[in-house]
Amino acid sequence: MTTLDSSKEIQKSTPEVSKNHEDFRMFGLVTFLIADGMTFAGFFAAYLTYKAVNPLPEGAIYELELPIPTLNTILLLVSSATFHKAGKALLKDKNSDSQKWLILTAFLGIIFLICQLFEYFHLPFGLTDNLFASTFYALTGFHGLHVTLGTLMILIISWQTRLNTGRITSKNMFPLEAVELYWHFVDGIWVILFIILYLL
């Protein structure tokens, strides 16, 4: 008797395999966000290295005004909370409440983007002025791209949470949860960015 035959026997005699697995989509999303986070980590590392070793040309402006970004930080933090509320409401099957919270979140996101653009237009430097300016725009721009995407997705899911015909219900929470996690992630990145770019 070869090893194979004997092992086949024990292997066949195991109990029925369940066909169902727990939902692993969230797990995939978290892995993706880790990857995305590493992109930001690369940018942050580059920014900090530049700051440490590459002196700016004389007269370069690198002090930033704080009011707008502070407002933006608050906007994003509040929007995280409103998103959370939306999830809570959906869980209790209050779809229209959930929808309202979502639209409020998207609205906050849009204001964030408008403020960001406003800041861009009033900054005393342009993309190619110096190393600090370039990294500033690259970092905030890349983050702004994330916010834009997030806002679009929030609008889509808020449409999908509508009562009766919407696809997202308390039984199918995944899209909402996924976008929520993504949104918290984007917030978290902003807080780090705010500290590193504006405060340090």
């Binding site: 980590a41 690369g42 940018f43 190619t128 370039s134 690259a138 890349f142």
Partner: peptide
């Protein structure tokens, strides 16, 4: 992802003349 970020910066250098 770090490579991706780096290459994006490099493409800015090439196309948009950042430094």
């Amino acid at each position: 992802p770090v490579l991706a970020g780096t290459l994006i910066l490099l493409s800015f250098d090439i196309v948009a003349h950042t430094g």
